[in-house]
Computed example of a mutant assay.
Amino acid sequence: MTNSSLWLIPDAINRFGVRVHAVDGHRWNDATPCSEWKVRDLVNHMVGEHLWVPHLLAGESLEQVGDRYDGDVVGADPVRAWDEAAERSLAAWKGADLSGTARFSFGEAPLTVYADQILVDLTVHEWDLARGSGQPERLDPAAVDHSLAYARANAERIANLGIIAAPVHTTSTDPAVQLLSLLGRAV
């Protein structure tokens, strides 16, 4: 485990899971900072993402996985769906060899980049889930620091993907606020 995001991922998965379990039943349709997603949609996105992890870390291609995780992957029980996806993802990360590369929708990249992206997604979407479901919004400082370094180093590429809102100006010195603002969240 030489990549620092790799050792941060298990705790980030577990923290996100704690947030999923804490969603009050009536809050699943509440808005999140991700303008197109309700709380349930956000969890659906993360479940789908973590269902992909074992395949990509095992060297499968996008074509081999296909569209099996498109659409609604949480069904009637988002909590159970998250728990099952998280368990599979955790097992894959614990045995991961990040020395190789994989092909992603944006092209081929080292698996260390994939680990960084997963950590950023877990960290930022943990905040999105907390904000959308009325939970405390504090984030893990180590995950924030690593995610902020990755986001700063890749800001132009991230912006060019067109999948997140434009950065929001901030004068805050708080690393979490800087990360969230850089990734289009108004804190």
Rank of each mutant, 00 (worst) to 15 (best):
S147M: 02
I164K: 13
D116G: 05
T112K: 04
T2N: 14
A31M: 03
R138D: 14
L182K: 08
L139D: 10
L148R: 06
G48T: 03
N3E: 13
K38V: 09
L8W: 00
D116Y: 01
L139I: 12
A149N: 15
V79L: 04
G162C: 08
A22T: 14
Y150G: 08
R152L: 06
I13Q: 02
R103F: 00
L179A: 09
N44W: 03
I9C: 06
D77A: 12
V18Q: 14
T171G: 14
A130C: 05
A102R: 10
A85Q: 03
A22L: 10
H45T: 04
A102Q: 10
F104T: 15
S133N: 07
G66A: 11
D30G: 11
D116K: 04
A166K: 15
V47G: 03
L122Y: 03
R157K: 14
G95V: 09
A22D: 14
A166P: 12
I9M: 09
N3P: 09
L148D: 09
A130H: 01
H169S: 15
V73E: 04
D121H: 08
D70P: 05
A153M: 00
A142V: 13
A92Q: 07
P167R: 05
S61M: 02
V47A: 02
A76D: 15
A91P: 05
L111G: 09
L148S: 08
H26P: 07
W82N: 04
A186S: 15
A81I: 04
A115Q: 04
S35E: 13
M46K: 03
W7E: 15
A96T: 04
A115N: 03
